[in-house]
Amino acid sequence: MPHDHPSHSHEGMSPSGHPYRADNDTALTYWQRMEIAVRELLVEKGAVTPEEVARQIDTMDARSPANGAAVVARAWVDPDFKARLLQDASAASREMGFDIGPLRLIAVENTESVHNLIVCTLCSCYPRNLLGLPPDWYKTRAYRSRAVIEPRAVLREFGVELPDHVQVRVHDSTADMRYVVLPARPAGTEGLDEAELAALVTRDSMIGTGLPRTP
């Protein structure tokens, strides 16, 4: 979906190095007018308050892949926690203090013989209450179409080349469950503590399109 990057004070890029979406200082669009109107009507009808909207935005902003990385790192260092995570990933995430709301989460484990990949072919279901909002590519027609028919080709585009003896398991989030990949702990990380391990865990490694960094 093309969008313009008009020159403005940010020189077109955000602190995270991404182009800004056309926002407050560009021409008002039809759909932005609809958002404003819908929000105001909901407030006037007593359905939501402006404070609730602001708080919900803050809540989502506070969720990030770092939350998932902390869960993964704990599983790498604590076998009992890992067992609980694989049994019930929602409960294990809450146990670590993450407010994931009603999210029904399943953790799937990568091993020497299995690589898991998460997709939602029907819409854009994603473990957002743990990892934050999904990356744009996750929501594209290309990813959603191809992940279930040629996952290895998709993985190669992301720089992940799997040997033939590794089975790929694709998980299509078609209904009420959400999925997070528990990546395999990289070799050579024996001396690292939990925080150092968490720093190796990338967002994509928890979707399955990437592998953890190596130290």
Partner: peptide, 23 residues
């Protein structure tokens, strides 16, 4: 759980890979 062979037949990228879905 479905095998890629079951879902895509001869077009499967790797027949023994799988796709899971909630049904």
């Amino acid at each position: 759980r479905f095998t890629m062979e079951e879902v895509w037949g001869a077009a499967a990228e790797t027949p023994t890979d799988t796709v899971d879905a909630e049904i």
